[in-house]
């Protein structure tokens, strides 16, 4: 006998990742701090090390509420950077 699978289709994604920059020298690094404890500290240190190793520079630092989507104006400012670091949980 046959039964249905329960998942349904996957809809179009709201956003996709930009292609990764092969060379970071001279590029701008952004940080999106999601306000979780130590997220800004962790991402800031990682960004500093990345900048030191590659010749990129940290230019945009933004902070958002952990539980809500980032507002459009914040995303527009971050879009000025070629690389954005984000993602930190509890």
């Amino acid at each position: 006998m046959r039964i249905y699978a329960p998942e349904g289709a996957v809809g179009p994604s709201a956003a996709s990742l930009a292609p990764f920059e092969p060379v970071l020298a001279g590029k701008r690094i952004g940080i999106l701090d999601n306000s979780k404890p130590n997220a800004g500290l962790l991402l800031g240190r990682v960004a500093e090390r990345l900048a030191t190793r590659t010749g990129a520079r940290v230019e945009v630092v933004e902070r958002k509420n952990a539980a809500l989507p980032a507002p459009d104006d914040l995303l527009a400012r971050l879009a000025e950077a070629e690389v954005v670091l984000t993602g930190s949980a509890d």
Binding site: R2, I3, A5, E7
Partner: peptide, 22 residues
């Protein structure tokens, strides 16, 4: 219009069999 839903073959409609299949 969404794609047709996937169908599965299962030997029995016993609730335990469906649980295992899933």
């Amino acid at each position: 219009m969404a794609e047709p839903l996937e169908m599965l073959d299962i030997a029995s409609e016993d609730p335990e069999a469906v649980r295992t299949c899933y």
